[in-house]
Amino acid sequence: MSQLRVEKVQELMKQEISQIILQELKDPRIGFVTVTSVECTGDLREAKIYVSLMGSEQQVKDCWAGLTSSLGFIRREIGKRIRLRFTPELSFALDKSLDYSAHIQELLIKIKADEEEKANPTEEQ
């Protein structure tokens, strides 16, 4: 299957899944969820949805449980909205890239502060 078609379907699925999670899921456990990307197999039979979850550890666990329990509903809605021969089998994967980038940003700020302290040691004394 054409790679261009797969990429278009992936982007369309990302938009539709984001809209479904935001507007149609009624589960109170689902909090702040960002769909970062969708990866489909070449035959469009399986799709892995990468999501980023924000909140405390307990909120993330509850949100993850809510998302996994709603996979059937999301798949059915994708089947209605996107006209494909086969509706892909969906699975969620946790995307830690936003947490990692926030950690790197904190480290860079700390390094910059340490360098400024070394450059101006007379002000502290």
Score class of each variant (00 low, 15 high):
residue 99 D to E: 09
residue 102 A to Q: 13
residue 10 Q to T: 00
residue 46 E to L: 11
residue 83 R to P: 07
residue 99 D to M: 03
residue 89 E to N: 10
residue 46 E to P: 05
residue 84 L to Q: 01
residue 75 R to D: 05
residue 26 K to W: 02
residue 70 S to P: 03
residue 116 E to L: 14
residue 85 R to K: 03
residue 109 I to Q: 15
residue 10 Q to I: 06
residue 65 A to T: 15
residue 23 Q to D: 04
residue 83 R to A: 12
residue 33 V to F: 02
residue 96 K to P: 05
residue 67 L to P: 05
residue 16 E to I: 15
residue 53 L to E: 01
residue 117 E to T: 13
residue 53 L to A: 03
residue 99 D to C: 05
residue 71 L to D: 11
residue 97 S to F: 12
residue 110 K to S: 07
residue 8 K to L: 04
residue 75 R to Y: 13
residue 88 P to N: 14
residue 46 E to R: 09
residue 92 F to C: 14
residue 16 E to S: 07
residue 66 G to I: 00
residue 85 R to I: 05
residue 34 T to H: 06
residue 65 A to W: 14
residue 12 L to H: 00
residue 65 A to Q: 15
residue 39 E to Q: 10
residue 108 L to E: 07
residue 121 P to E: 00
residue 30 I to E: 14
residue 40 C to E: 01
residue 68 T to K: 14
residue 99 D to W: 09
residue 114 D to L: 11
residue 116 E to G: 06
residue 19 Q to V: 08
residue 119 A to K: 13
residue 20 I to V: 04
residue 59 Q to E: 15
residue 105 Q to S: 15
residue 56 S to D: 03
residue 56 S to L: 08
residue 61 K to I: 06
residue 97 S to Q: 11
residue 85 R to N: 00
residue 125 Q to M: 10
residue 87 T to P: 00
residue 112 K to D: 14
residue 104 I to R: 11
residue 55 G to F: 01
residue 119 A to R: 12
residue 90 L to C: 04
residue 91 S to V: 10
